[in-house]
Design a protein around this nucleic acid. Structure first.
Length: 976
DNA sequence: ACAGAAGCTTA
DNA sequence: GTAAGCTTCTGTT
C-alpha cells in the first residue's frame, strides 16, 4: 500500500444486525430461507465496488476487506466478565444469515477477516493504523459509535444505509466531542447494550460537558473534587474505577498481532461467474442481472452455487451467541417473527395447510397426444420455473425398463400424461399394435430434453434416481432437481412411516393416490404399463406428478425451518447422480467361477446331508428349523437348548456350536451344511441371474432413503453382504473381477466408527492412539487390564475388541456376556471398568440418551437428524432398545455421512487428476470399490485415499485422523 | 400368492 | 448390544 491508496473496511458483523432490523424481511422464494440481511449486504458491497470504477462518485477503494467478529469471547471478557453479558440471542431467522454473509464475501472475492480473541472493531483499528502508516486513507463502512474514536485526518466512516459520510465534524455534531475524546466519552456514559458500566447518572450530555470543561477523563477524575454539583461530584469519585475500567473496554486495540498484510487486500476485478453463481443460489434476481450486465456474463449459463446454511448449533461464533434452551430452530408458529409470515416456519405451516385444503382430483388431467400441446405444456413449465415429472416404464429395474410415457405437473391440480408406446389389447394373444395418436417417443423426448436440462427450471421427482437413470439412458441429463423422497428422509428420518409417495401423500395431503396394483394388477396377472389404457394411465401417471409437486411445496420450506438445508444439499441430493452412474456401470462377475463353486457347494452339502440322516436316524428337511429342533431336542434329547419367541426350539448357529463343543456330532454337520447351502442359494446360484444380458455386468440398486442412520442399502442383488469371514465364503469374492486390462481397487476406512466415537466423545486416550496409529483394541485392553501391549495374550485383546464394538452398539451387560460367552456379572464388571478408564464415553452415552429423550431425535456430526419416536415408550425394553439405537445412530450415521461426502467429491477429484477411466463401482458402508485401467492404478490410489481421508473437511475438523487402506488386484478377494 | 419367522451374510 | 437384505420354511389367504 502506498500514498494515495484507499482502504475500505466493512464492519460485517455490525452491518448484518443493522440490515436485519432496518430492511424489510426477505426470504428465498423456493424454500423460505431468510436472506434479507444478505441481500442488503450484497447490494451494498456491489455498490461500493462499482464506485471503484465510477471514479466520479464518492471515494474509490483500491484495497478492500470485510471484517467479522470471531467469537463472543474476547480479551475484554478477561477484563470484565460481564462484558456484553446481557446481550440476548439473535433472532432465529438471522442465525443462518451470519454464515451466508461470509459466503457472500467470498463470492465477491473479498478478504473475509476475523480473529479469535478480538472483535471486528479491533481488527479495523489495526488495519486503519497500518494504512495510515503506509500513507493511505481508510474508509470504515459502519455507523457504529464504537468506531468513531478512529476518525481522523486519514480515517473516515461511511454509513451505507443512510448514504452518509462521517468525518470529524459529524462526530462532534452527534456527540459533542471530537473523535479522540470518544473513548473518554463512552467510558463516562457507559453502554447498556454492551453492558459497559460507565459512571451511573452520567449520560451523553453530561459526559460531553465534563470533557469540554476538563479536557480528558484523567484530568476530570483528578480534579473531580472541584465539581460544583454535589451528587455528580460524589458519583464520579465513588465510581472512578468503573470509569477507568470502562475506558479499557471501549478503547480499541490497534495492535492486534498476526494480521494479514494490507497488500493482500488489493481490490480485484470481480469474478463475475462466481458471484453470479452465489446470487442465483440466493435468488437475488435483480442484482444477478446487474452483475451479469456489468461483467458481460450470461447469467443463464451459470449454475447456481451450493451454499451451506448453518442454523446455529454447528456455526462457530458469536454472532450466534448463546441460544436459549427453548429457542430451537423449530419455527414456532407463535413467535412474533413467524406470525409476520416471513420465517421458514410460517411458510412451511402455510404450505402444509394449503396442501390439505386443495383436494386432489385425478380425473381432471390431460393426456397429451400431439406435439403442439406438449410444447404448450413445456412452455408452461418454463414459466412456472418448477415442474414435477415422473416416468412410467415396464420394469422396476431402470437398467432394463422401457419408457412407456412421462407425466408433468406445473402447479397443484395441473398435470398431464404423455403416452409414448402404449399398446392395445392387453391379454390379447396376438398382442395388439401401438395405440393411435401417440407422439413418437423420439420426438417427444427431443421436446422434453431442453426442459429437463434447463438450469432455470427446477425438476422435481419422487425417488429421482430411478427417473434419472431412465433419462440418462435416453441421453437426457436432468438438472437442477429436487427429490421429495429425499426431502422427507432428511426431515423425518427414523420417524414412523416410509418415504414412499403413497405414504407421503397420505401423511401430508390426506389423499390416497391410485395404487399401482389397481392399474397393472399384481403377481401373475400383472401387465406392464404399456398395456394400460390411456384414460386409466393418465389418471395414475399424472396424479403421481401432481402429488409429487404438492409434496415438494410442503416439504421444501420445512428444510430451512428445521435447519436441514445443508444435510439435504451436501449429503443427499448430489449423491443421486453419483449412485445412478455407479448402478449403471455395474461390476463384472465371472459366471464360470460361480458355477464351479455352486457345484462344489452342492457336492459338499449332499455329502453332509447323508451323514446327517445317518446320525439322525431318519430323513428330514434339514433346512427346517422346526423339524431339526424336534430331532435334536425331542427325539435325541440333547441337553440345554433355548426357545424362540414363538416357542420353537432355537437352532441358531450359536446353539449348535455349543452342542458341538459338548461333543455331539450332528450339530456340527448342520452348521456346515447350512453354510454351504446358504452360500449356494444366496450367492453362487442367485448372482448369475443378475447379470444384465446387454451389459454382461451386475447392477445393484442403492437405496438412499431406507436406513434410519443415513447408511445406504443395496439390493437386487445386495452387494453389501458378500461373504468374507470364512475361507469358503471368500471364494465368492474371487468371482467379482475387473475387465481385462483393468484392476479393482478396494479402499476402506480403518476403524471409522471408533474414530468417530473418539471424536464425538472426545476421549484423550483414543485420540492419542489414533493419532499415533497404534492398535486401538490393544490400547483399550492395556488401559483396562493393565497389561502391556507388547506380548499381550490374544484373548485379552479379543475381549477389549468386543467391548469397543459393544460401546458403539450401546452396550449392555447382557449383550456383552452373550458375545464373549462369559457370565453377566463378569461382563458388568468389564463395562464398569471401561467407564472408569474412559469416563467421557459414559458422558457421551448419557448425553445421547438425554438428547434423544428431550428432543425425540439425535444428530450426526454433520447435522443429520435421526428420530426416535418411541424413546419415551412406557415399555422398558422398547425404551432400552431406542436408547441403544440413540447411542449408535450418531456414530454409524456420522461415518455414513463421511463416506457420502467422499463419494460426492470423488468423481471430480479423479477427473481433475486426469484419471478419466477410473470409475467408482460399489460402496460397502466403509469401503469403496473402483475399477481402473492398469495404467491409472498408481495415480488413482492416492487420489482416492486423499478424498476419503479428508472427506470431513472443510465442514468439520475431525479431532482424530481418518485412515484409508487401499489395494488393487484382479478380483475383489485379493483387492480387499 | 403372500407374510412372518428363523436363520445367515455384511459393516 | 447397532444398521441392513435374502432365502427357506411354514401357515394363511
Amino acid at each position: 500500500m502506498k500514498k494515495g491508496d484507499h482502504l475500505f473496511l466493512v464492519d460485517g458483523s455490525g452491518y448484518i444486525f443493522r440490515a436485519y432490523h432496518a430492511l424489510p424481511p426477505l426470504t428465498r422464494k423456493s424454500d423460505g430461507l431468510p436472506v434479507g440481511a444478505v441481500s442488503g449486504f450484497c447490494n451494498m458491497l456491489w455498490k461500493l465496488m462499482q464506485n471503484a470504477r465510477d471514479t466520479d462518485v464518492g471515494a474509490t477503494p483500491t484495497h478492500f476487506a470485510v471484517i467479522f467478529d470471531y467469537s463472543s469471547k474476547t480479551f475484554r471478557n478477561e477484563l470484565y466478565p460481564e462484558y456484553k453479558a446481557n446481550r440476548s440471542a439473535p433472532p432465529e431467522d438471522l442465525i443462518p444469515q451470519f454464515g451466508l454473509i461470509r459466503e457472500a464475501t467470498r463470492a465477491f472475492d473479498l478478504p473475509c477477516l476475523e480473529m479469535e480473541g478480538y472483535e471486528a472493531d479491533d481488527l479495523i483499528a489495526t488495519y486503519a493504523r497500518l494504512a495510515c502508516e503506509a500513507g493511505g486513507d481508510t474508509t470504515i463502512i459502519s455507523s457504529d459509535k464504537d468506531l468513531m474514536q478512529l476518525v481522523g485526518p486519514t480515517v473516515s466512516m461511511y454509513d451505507p444505509m443512510k448514504d452518509k459520510e462521517i468525518n470529524v465534524p459529524e462526530v462532534i455534531e452527534k456527540w459533542g466531542v471530537p473523535p479522540e475524546k470518544m473513548i473518554d466519552l463512552q467510558a463516562l456514559m457507559g453502554d447498556s447494550v454492551d453492558n459497559i458500566p460507565g459512571v451511573p447518572g452520567i449520560g451523553q450530555k453530561t459526559a460531553a460537558q465534563l470533557l469540554e470543561e476538563y479536557g480528558d477523563l484523567d484530568t476530570l477524575l483528578e480534579r473531580a473534587g472541584e465539581i460544583k454539583q454535589q451528587k455528580r461530584r460524589e458519583t464520579l469519585i465513588e465510581n472512578r474505577d468503573k470509569a477507568l475500567m470502562s475506558r479499557e473496554l471501549v478503547r480499541l486495540r490497534n495492535d492486534v498481532p498476526g494480521v494479514e498484510p494490507l497488500d493482500d487486500f488489493v481490490l480485484q476485478p470481480p469474478n463475475g461467474p462466481k458471484l453470479i453463481s452465489f446470487l442465483k443460489a440466493m435468488e437475488f434476481t435483480t442484482l444477478t442481472r446487474r452483475v451479469a450486465e456489468a461483467s458481460g456474463a450470461e447469467a443463464a449459463e451459470i449454475e447456481s452455487a451450493q451454499v451451506d446454511v448453518e442454523w446455529g448449533e454447528a456455526a462457530h461464533g458469536p454472532d450466534v451467541g448463546s441460544k436459549p434452551a427453548d429457542a430451537t430452530a423449530e419455527g414456532d408458529a407463535a413467535s412474533p417473527a413467524a406470525a409476520a409470515g416471513d420465517t421458514p416456519g410460517a411458510l412451511a405451516a402455510a404450505r402444509a395447510a394449503e396442501a390439505v385444503a386443495q383436494k386432489v382430483d385425478n380425473t381432471a388431467y390431460d393426456c397429451i397426444r400431439d406435439i403442439a400441446t406438449l410444447r404448450e405444456w413445456i412452455a408452461e413449465a418454463r414459466e412456472a420455473g418448477v415442474v414435477a415429472f415422473d416416468t412410467e416404464t415396464t420394469s422396476l429395474d431402470p437398467m432394463q425398463a422401457e419408457l412407456c410415457g412421462f407425466s408433468l405437473a406445473t402447479r397443484p391440480g395441473r398435470a398431464a400424461y404423455v403416452p409414448l408406446i402404449h399398446k392395445s389389447g392387453a391379454g390379447d394373444l396376438l398382442g395388439g399394435g401401438l395405440v393411435e395418436g401417440q407422439i413418437p417417443a423420439r420426438d417427444a423426448l427431443a421436446e422434453l430434453k431442453p426442459l429437463m436440462e434447463d438450469r432455470s427450471v427446477l425438476k422435481v421427482a419422487q425417488n429421482l434416481k430411478y427417473d434419472l437413470v431412465i433419462m440418462q439412458r435416453h441421453g437426457i441429463d436432468v438438472a437442477p432437481y429436487d427429490d421429495t423422497m429425499l426431502l422427507s428422509y432428511v426431515l423425518d428420518g427414523g420417524s414412523n412411516g416410509s418415504h414412499g409417495m403413497d405414504a407421503l401423500s397420505e401423511r401430508w395431503l390426506g389423499h390416497t393416490p391410485i395404487a399401482f396394483k389397481d392399474v397393472c394388477g399384481s403377481g401373475k396377472a400383472m401387465v406392464t404399463f404399456d398395456f394400460v389404457d390411456l384414460d386409466r394411465a393418465t389418471c395414475y401417471a399424472a396424479e403421481d406428478a401432481d402429488v409429487t409437486l404438492r409434496l415438494w411445496r410442503v416439504l421444501k420450506p420445512r428444510l430451512a425451518e428445521k435447519g436441514l438445508v445443508s444435510v439435504y444439499e451436501r449429503l443427499e441430493r448430489p449423491l443421486v447422480p453419483v449412485l445412478g452412474r455407479m448402478e449403471q456401470r455395474g461390476i463384472s462377475v465371472d459366471r464360470q467361477i460361480l458355477s464351479r463353486l455352486s457345484g462344489d457347494f452342492a457336492q459338499g452339502a449332499a455329502a453332509l446331508e447323508d451323514e446327517i440322516y445317518q446320525l439322525a436316524g431318519e430323513r428330514f428337511t434339514v433346512g427346517s428349523p422346526k423339524q431339526l429342533g424336534d430331532i435334536l431336542f425331542g427325539k435325541m434329547g440333547l441337553p440345554g437348548g433355548s426357545k424362540t419367541k414363538t416357542g420353537q426350539w432355537s437352532t441358531t448357529a450359536r446353539e449348535l456350536e455349543d452342542l458341538a463343543a459338548a461333543g455331539h456330532e450332528l450339530p456340527r454337520k448342520i452348521v456346515d451344511w447350512r453354510q454351504l447351502t446358504k452360500l449356494k442359494s444366496t450367492y453362487t446360484d442367485a448372482l448369475p441371474g443378475f447379470i444384465n444380458p446387454q451389459t454382461k455386468r451386475v447392477h445393484t440398486s442403492y437405496a438412499l432413503a431406507s436406513t434410519t442412520t443415513g447408511r445406504l442399502s443395496s439390493s437386487d442383488p445386495n452387494l453389501q453382504n458378500i461373504p468374507i469371514r470364512t475361507a469358503e465364503g471368500r471364494k465368492i469374492r474371487t468371482a467379482f473381477i475387473a475387465e481385462p486390462g483393468n484392476l479393482l481397487i478396494s479402499a476402506d476406512y480403518s476403524q471409522i466408527e471408533l474414530r468417530v466415537l473418539a471424536h464425538v466423545a472426545d476421549i484423550p486416550q483414543l485420540r492419542q492412539a489414533f493419532a499415533d496409529g497404534i492398535d486401538i483394541h490393544a490400547m483399550t485392553a492395556s488401559e483396562m487390564f493393565g497389561v502391556p501391549v507388547e506380548g499381550m495374550p490374544g484373548e485379552v485383546r479379543r475381549r477389549a475388541k468386543a467391548i469397543n464394538f459393544g460401546i458403539i452398539y450401546g452396550i449392555s451387560a447382557f449383550g456383552l456376556a452373550n458375545q464373549l460367552a462369559i457370565p453377566r456379572e463378569e461382563a458388568s464388571a468389564y463395562i464398569k471398568k471401561y467407564f472408569e478408564r474412559f469416563p467421557g464415553i459414559r458422558d457421551y452415552m448419557d448425553a445421547a440418551k438425554a438428547h434423544s429423550r428431550d428432543n425425540g431425535y439425535v444428530e450426526t456430526i454433520f447435522g443429520r437428524r435421526i428420530h426416535f419416536p418411541e424413546i419415551r415408550s412406557p415399555n422398558p425394553s422398547v425404551r432400552a432398545f431406542n436408547e441403544r439405537a440413540s447411542i449408535n445412530a450418531p456414530i454409524q450415521g456420522s461415518a455414513a455421512d463421511i463416506i457420502r461426502r467422499a463419494m460426492v467429491r470423488m468423481e471430480a477429484a479423479l477427473e481433475k487428476a486426469g484419471l478419466h477411466n477410473t470409475q467408482m463401482l460399489l460402496q460397502v458402508h466403509d469401503e469403496l470399490i473402483f475399477e481402473a485401467p492398469e495404467g491409472e492404478i498408481e495415480a488413482a490410489m492416492p487420489v482416492i485415499r486423499d478424498v476419503m481421508e479428508h472427506a470431513a473437511m472443510p465442514a468439520l475438523a475431525m479431532k482424530v485422523p481418518l485412515h484409508v487402506d487401499a489395494r488393487a488386484a484382479k478380483n475383489w478377494d485379493e483387492a480387499h
